[in-house]
Design a protein around this nucleic acid. Structure first.
Lengths: 230, 230
DNA sequence: TTAATATCGAGAATTATTTCTCGATTAGAA
DNA sequence: TTCTAATCGAGAAATAATTCTCGATATTAA
């Protein structure tokens, strides 16, 4: 009933399928690699071969960025790279706060290439006083109690949660108090926030489930191969 | 051409859509929480309400685990929990090697609850001699040169890659040499391995793209609301 | 005991996504 | 210049996933 299309009807931007959004960074990375080799253009066929994707699918994905190609030649590398950047909003810097200065938080603070995606983690927060007042990868760690005020003052609108599952809801509430617009949640727990806030869960157990089941299935199949028709 | 169905035709196990596999852990977690409250049974309606999913979808997902429910009552909590565990292969222990003892590797070594999913990371490896011979969360860190032999000897068939993008291919080759069956790749790079090996990529940039685009779109919409028809 | 209601299970309908098909276009070779 | 081959773009077709519909069944309350 209250489908995406309702909003899309009002929106100037057409709805883009999530699978497409998830493939765009793969193209982007490949394109940058190709540029480094001195290449000028690229075709869907080439991208598809490199990434093991159907060429038509690549073409449809590229279409959403508004880039037009030329028959027999393909797309201009620079033009396409910029179009993807623009489409994803990676051409503008988004400042972010990170909650949870454990090893996962540390990993994200030092993650290479976030800057190229316009993501700038400006500070980290933790409940543990022992973890505060440190500097990790050039970012200060402060106490969570300072988060909401600082967030409003600095006009930061993006939050990353890397706390344990039990503390995720608390972290989310602090971000909401600070006026967050979007949350990237790495805690294996669902958080309750107002509907207007964009939430993306990065739940490792979901991926693990896909792997586990495939591996289990594969092992079951290779076992039953020894005794077919059984 | 060489579709999934080709294999599925030979397989005893029916093909299960990936979205379903990714939702099962969410049910699993909720179910365990409910069990702790002393609850005995649960309905699709309840699960759907908690997780903001359609009840029919929940029912279809549960169907793949082979659990049968009772009208008006729902499913038995213990039965359903066990069925999900069994279906995902989480009832058997899978031993794994982790390559890359940086902060991301450390985060995974200390990740809570992997044991409940049957995942047991038995050792970590790194190219950096300074990182070797340490013990992180009770797991020894060894030099990567020891990986292939040790992997064969210990009969470990699952690999986790947490090295920088540039070293991902090398890490993958070591795992292949060790006889790996499935790889969970956290490096933002595609790895080339024989087709028979199951690979799941945990690419943060793909998720970031979804977030970025939604945020960009949202900001664009809220801006154009001020000046409609423009 | 009977009626009302919540739920499951199965299949139909809808919607989303991927893949196929084909005409148009353009670079490069003959 | 003309032919050939590679590619794009658009729309049709096929496939996958979600949501709807409805009959059957079991619990609870009257």
């Amino acid at each position: 009933m209250d489908k995406v299309m309702v909003r899309a009807g009002r929106s100037l931007v057409k709805h883009v399928p999530e699978p497409t959004l998830r493939r765009l960074p793969l193209y982007y990375r490949l394109l940058r690699q190709l540029r480094e080799t001195g290449c000028k253009g690229v075709s869907c066929t080439t991208i598809g071969r490199e990434l093991k994707l159907d060429a038509t699918q690549v073409r449809k994905d590229i279409e959403v960025t508004g880039t037009v190609g030329r028959p027999k030649v393909g797309y201009d590398l620079v033009e396409l790279t910029c179009a993807i950047e623009r489409f994803l909003g990676w051409d503008n810097t988004t400042e972010a706060f990170l909650v949870g200065a454990g090893s996962l938080g540390e990993a994200l603070l030092g993650y290479p290439g976030f800057a190229e995606c316009g993501l700038n983690i400006v500070a980290a927060f933790d409940v543990d006083p022992n973890k505060c007042h440190r500097v990790i990868h050039g970012k200060h760690v402060r106490h969570v109690s300072k988060l909401p005020n600082l967030m409003r003052r600095m006009r930061v609108r993006f939050g990353i949660i890397t706390v344990p599952a039990a503390e995720a809801q608390h972290a989310a509430e602090l971000l909401v108090e600070g006026g967050v617009l979007a949350i990237w949640n790495f805690a294996p727990a669902k958080i309750r926030v107002p509907d207007s806030i964009i939430v993306t869960n990065e739940d490792l157990y979901c991926s693990l489930a896909v792997m586990s089941q495939r591996l289990t299935k594969k092992l079951a199949e290779s076992r039953s191969k020894g005794e077919p028709k059984a």
